[in-house]
């Protein structure tokens, strides 16, 4: 009952076994053709029941009352939490592998992801200069990831510093004033498409009155795929890779 779970199930080769997904589950594209059981906070119990699933995999963002109701109807429900760092991704994959009897596939997936993560970390080595970055979610004001979010962890692993790290929350609404004060070296925009990204970039420079901020003045504004970054799944390693390359191109043998 969450896009990241659907994504992991597909990565474990369980795509054909999925009986129902939420209407937010759009990755991989094959997920679109699976029956929808509702949203994240309002999954429809009747629809779930009618699919007669052997197992329901829920996550912490599904309302507890819905989960309890499903359990009361004798459906086996397994509830997962999303972690606050990449380290939590591998146990999550392993647990999904365990409950779906795909331990080997889960082990392989976790190992290959971990290898890619370590490759990035090795390439970075011990970078001295850590750019200070601000990540913004396009479209709803200046929402950013706080110190308890997994993106905060990814930023740190990519050799950068999240300016919103002192905020003890997962997602926070940041005020423009704070951004001006913190003066980040780079800004990442989480957007659904390149076009949205371009719009958000122009908006930051003009309407948001952030033209004086270093990142905007130097044009160090980067695109991050919101679909990958907002889901606690395998593509987070892509996000890490992209972020690290944007922050420290020299470490990856690219021209600065």
């Amino acid at each position: 009952m969450a896009p990241n779970i659907t994504e992991i199930l597909f990565a474990l080769g369980l795509g054909p076994n999925i009986a129902g997904v939420t209407r937010f589950c759009d990755y991989p594209p094959e997920a679109a053709s699976i029956d929808k059981i509702g949203g994240l906070v309002n999954p429809n119990i009747e629809r779930i029941l009618a699919r007669a699933p052997d197992l329901v995999i829920a996550f912490r963002g599904n309302p507890l009352r819905v989960v309890n109701r499903l359990a009361a109807l004798d459906l086996p429900v397994f509830v997962l939490d999303i972690g606050n760092g990449l380290d939590a991704l591998y146990p999550l994959i392993a647990r999904i592998g365990l409950v779906t009897r795909r331990e080997t596939a889960a082990g392989d997936l976790a190992a290959s992801l971990l290898a890619r993560q370590q490759a990035v970390e090795k390439a970075l080595g011990t970078v001295r200069v850590k750019p200070r970055v601000f990540v913004v979610l396009h479209g709803q004001g200046l929402w950013t990831c706080g110190g308890q979010s997994y993106l905060n962890d990814i930023i740190a692993r990519a050799g950068a510093v999240n300016i919103a790290a002192p905020m003890p929350k997962k997602w926070v609404l940041y005020s423009p004033e704070r951004i001006v004060r913190d003066d980040p070296d780079a800004i990442f925009i989480l957007a659904r498409s390149e076009a949205d990204f371009a719009r958000a970039r122009d908006w930051l420079a003009r309407e948001a009155h952030l033209g004086t901020v270093k990142a905007v003045a130097a044009g160090r504004i980067y695109f991050l795929d919101e679909n990958s970054a907002s889901r606690f799944g395998p593509r987070l390693v892509d996000v890490l890779d992209r972020m690290a390359r944007a922050m420290h191109p020299e470490c990856f043998g690219e021209k600065t």
Binding site: V41, N42, R60, G61, P63, V66, R69, A72, K169, K170
Partner: peptide, 20 residues
């Protein structure tokens, strides 16, 4: 409470979704 959106809709606009 951080996990409050569905709760807010429930308490402020009403629902029978989880009736039993």
């Amino acid at each position: 409470r951080s996990d409050s959106f569905d709760q807010a809709v429930f308490w402020l606009l009403g629902s029978f979704q989880l009736a039993d």
